[in-house]
Structures are given as structure tokens and as C-alpha cells.
Design a protein around this nucleic acid. Structure first.
Length: 427
RNA sequence: GGAAGCGUGGCCGAGUGGUUUAAGGCAGUGCUCUUGAAAAGCACCGAGGGCUGAUACCCCUCCGUGAGUUCGAAUCUCACCGCUUCCGCCA
């Protein structure tokens, strides 16, 4: 959510900056709502003050045993008026809230303007894509060739966009999780957390998935009133740890890492990446989350992105780092770097991590604050990034480490978690 | 799933319809005293919003959440949520 003070001061400038990310901010509607809110709120509060004063007077008179009929008559007409005003104010504030919850974050000044992913800017490349002296296979052929990846089984037991892994490949998947968690906790100072895989609507509103993107989520119906949702990313439960909290200054920065499955409906991506593990309804991810002081959040974004890069470097997977342009960023983000790993079979780089600074956008929705040096509550800045998407990392390893005979070499960095297995072969 | 009880500020805890502007204590902050510390004393000490040039004053809202009764609700009514204890079931 944007700072309403900023909108009141200069809605036109905000509208212009939002225009850069392809969002049309309805200045007229906002200003009309605000003007009415101001009038009604003033009138409501005046009426409340009058009622409070008169009621207090009745109490005092009764205490002294005096007659109250005159004051009672005066306050009599106030009840209906007040009720009408309060109802109207509530409706207006609800409307204004709904309006503001649908407005995306402002892009940071360092973000290049652009319409879509073609406007993104490559920042750096690491590693050199390997050249193969045999025909390159994709991860589906490799995994099925090893008899360790089974899409047909997943279709049978669940449906499309799920997968079953077996044997060494399943173990490699688990090894990746352990490896990533160990690197981030031991070398990067993150605290490991285990969190629920289902969350309530308030948590999703806090990080920005609701109310706008409900169709991307899997809903778990209970009663109508309190439905739960499967998490689309650990960002949701982990960031919401600080919702409605005031964190002491000396506890900052907070750095959490969590491994969870993620569930996405992929509505609107029919036909995209239908083959293989690239786009699944269920995938595992190791997520990095930070809550920091505002003045430190852009340094924190660089550091967090570097933490994710470390994983790719240790696995010796070639990748590039891309700064998303204004038109390609997520709803809540002020600045986002994507890390894209090299996939030989697709002969291209594919997203494997997305690292974002949300500034105070999520914190304002969550009322997530810290006590500043002056002792006053102040909104935190929140960040997160994948460190990394486990399924896609597995894909990258299969394709980059494949051998001519269809076997796959296990990257050296993972071998401590592989119980002596250094190569995946058909058993 | 059944039964009973309980949700008040960072924490403990008083308050069962009106001088409550939520008592008192603990913790915290500042000051006095002191060579220093401790102790003692004094003062300050919740959050959100409105208004405003203002982090000043003033006003509104908040006692788990939401509705209701009333001129007036922490207090009464209803629903929901959560916690505790007992029983049942269970990894």
C-alpha cells in the first residue's frame, strides 16, 4: 500500500510514476473519495464529541440526583444522525481501502522504464555455458531415461503440472534443499524457520497477493468466513511473522530462511511450459526474507541477491543477473533482480530466483514496524528472494551436468549430502 | 468431538452501566542525590487516525473480533476467533 499522505500531497506525480509500470491511477476517483471522506469524518467526529460531552453530563447530573430530562432531550436527536454518519464513514473508508489495496508499489528511481520483459536490463553474467559434443537432452528425457522422473504417475494420482521423483533424483532434490539451507544459515547469517503451508486471507493481503491475485492461489474451503489458502511462496508466512509487531531496534536486521513447497494455480499460463518441471502447481523453494531499517534496504537487496547467487556459483551453474524494468516487476516490488540460469536444452537463460525490495509497501499493509532511535514506531522495509527455486535448480543440474550416456554427474558441492553418490545412473 | 473456565497496555493485574481521562505494580527512559554503582525520591512512559507548517495543542477510535441494547459499554446480550483444564480420539 502506498502512503496516503503522499497521495494527498501529490496524486498527480504518483499517477505519473505508476504510469511507468503500466498502471492507470484514477486520480479523479481518489480525490473525490478523499474529499468526501474528509467531510464525513469531520462531521462524524464532531457528533461523537458532542454525544460524549452530553452523556458525561447526564452521568454527573444523575450522580448528584438532579433532573436530566433537558439534556436527554438534547442528545435524543443525535443518535440517528450519528449512526448514519458512522455507517457512511465506514463504507467510504472501506471503499478507499479497497481502492488503495489495488494500487501497486512505486518503482525505485534506479529502475529502467519499460513496457514488458523486453525492457529488462542484463546486469551481469557468471560462468560460461558448456559446449556439448553430443546431442543435448532436456531434463524430461534425462529424468525419464534414468527412470527417476515420472510425469505419467503424477497425472494419474493428481493431474497435470505435478511430478513424481524417485531414487537418486529424489535424493538430489532433498540434497539441494539441505545444501541451500546450510549455506544460508552458516555462511549468510539467516535464521531457519519452519512455517505453515496454509495461510489466512489477512496474511496474503499483507504481502500483496490479495485482493488482486486470488485466481493464482489454491483455496482451501472451510467455512465461508475463514477460508485458508495454500502458500504460493514462503514469502507469505515468513514476512507475516512481523505483521502487527513493533520490532526493537537492536533486533534488526531480521533475516529468515525457510524451505517450503509452493502452490500456484498458474491460471492464465495455459500452454506455457507444459513440458517438464519448469512450471508446476507444486514446487519446493528455499526463500530468503529480510526486515530492515529503511535506509539499509537497498544495500540489503544487493546482499540478498548475492546470497542467492552464491548458490548458483557453488553449483557452478552459469547464470545472468537481470534488473527488471518498471513494466515487468511484481505488484508489491519497488526493485527486482531476477537470476536466470542457463538451460542448454532450451539454449537460453530461465528465471530461477527473483529478489525484491518492497520498501514499506508490505509493511504498511501489515503494520510491521520497528522502534526507531527516537523511540517512535516506524515502518520496516521488507525484502525477499528465492535462494533458490529447488525444482528449477534440479532441472538446471540435469541439463548442465548430463553425460553422453544419459547419466548425470552430481555437482561437487552437493556430494556431502549424497551419501557417496557422485553420478545418477539408471539402476 | 464433548464439558467447563478465561481473553484488559511490553508484562502482572484492578475494574460487573456514568466524576475511568483504564487504578496499582513491574519493566523501561530522564533527572535529583552519590567519587561511582546500588538504593531512595521526582518525572515521563500504549497504538492508530483526524486537524495542522508542526514530531505543539485539540478531537476521534481502540479493553480478543464483529454485531446488538443504551443518552452512555472494558462492564449487559448474541455470534465468531483464540487460549487453558478435563474427557474422548490421534502422528
Amino acid at each position: 500500500m502506498l502512503d496516503i499522505q503522499l497521495l494527498r500531497r501529490d496524486a498527480a506525480q504518483v499517477a505519473e510514476r505508476l504510469g511507468a509500470r503500466g498502471f492507470t491511477f484514477d486520480t479523479t476517483r481518489f480525490e473525490a473519495l478523499e474529499a468526501e471522506r474528509k467531510t464525513i469524518q469531520t462531521r462524524t467526529q464532531d457528533a461523537q464529541a458532542r454525544r460524549n460531552a452530553l452523556s458525561k453530563q447526564i452521568g454527573m447530573l444523575k450522580g448528584k440526583g438532579e433532573d436530566t430530562t433537558a439534556v436527554m432531550a438534547e442528545v435524543a436527536g443525535l443518535g440517528d444522525e450519528l449512526k448514519a454518519l458512522e455507517t457512511r464513514l465506514g463504507a467510504l473508508q472501506g471503499e478507499l481501502d479497497g481502492f488503495l489495496l489495488g494500487v501497486p508499489n512505486l518503482p525505485h528511481e534506479s529502475v529502467a522504464p519499460g513496457k514488458d520483459e523486453t525492457g529488462n536490463v542484463e546486469v551481469s553474467r557468471w560462468g560460461t555455458p558448456r559446449s556439448f559434443d553430443f546431442p543435448v537432452r532436456d531434463h524430461v528425457d534425462l529424468g525419464e531415461g534414468l527412470a527417476q522422473l515420472d510425469f505419467a504417475a503424477a497425472v494419474k494420482i493428481t493431474g497435470s503440472r505435478f511430478v513424481v521423483m524417485k531414487g537418486g533424483l529424489a535424493r538430489l532434490h532433498r540434497a539441494l534443499v539441505q545444501f541451500m539451507l546450510d549455506v544460508h544459515t552458516r555462511e549468510h547469517g539467516y535464521t531457519e524457520v519452519y512455517v505453515p503451508y496454509m495461510v489466512n486471507a489477512e496474511s496474503l493481503r499483507g504481502t500483496g497477493q490479495l485482493p488482486k491475485f486470488e485466481e493464482d492461489l489454491f483455496r482451501v474451503p472451510r467455512t465461508d468466513a475463514d477460508r485458508l489458502y495454500l502458500i504460493p511462496t514462503a514469502e507469505v508466512p515468513v514476512t507475516n511473522l512481523v505483521r502487527d509487531e513493533i520490532v526493537p531496534l537492536d533486533a534488526l536486521p531480521l533475516k529468515f530462511v525457510a524451505h517450503t513447497p509452493c502452490f500456484r494455480s498458474e491460471a492464465g499460463s495455459y500452454g506455457r511450459d507444459t513440458r517438464g518441471m519448469i512450471r508446476q502447481h507444486q514446487f519446493d523453494k528455499v526463500e530468503l526474507v529480510q526486515m530492515v531499517k529503511p535506509e539499509e534496504s537497498y544495500d540489503a537487496l544487493e546482499a540478498l541477491t548475492a546470497h542467492a547467487e552464491t548458490i548458483l556459483q557453488k553449483l557452478e551453474l552459469p547464470y545472468r543477473k537481470v534488473l527488471l524494468c518498471t513494466g515487468d516487476m511484481g505488484f508489491s516490488s519497488a526493485k527486482t533482480y531476477d537470476l536466470e540460469v542457463w538451460l542448454p536444452a532450451q539454449n537460453t537463460y530461465r528465471e530461477i530466483s527473483s529478489c525484491s525490495n518492497f520498501e514499506a509497501f508490505q509493511a504498511r499493509r501489515m503494520q510491521a514496524r520497528f522502534r526507531n532511535a527516537q523511540g517512535k514506531p516506524e515502518l520496516l522495509h521488507t525484502l525477499n528472494g528465492s535462494g533458490l527455486a529447488v525444482g528449477r535448480t534440479l532441472v538446471a543440474i540435469l541439463e548442465n551436468y548430463q553425460n553422453a550416456d544419459g547419466s548425470v554427474t552430481v555437482p561437487e558441492a552437493l556430494q556431502p549430502w549424497m551419501a557417496g553418490c557422485s553420478c545418477l545412473r539408471r539402476e
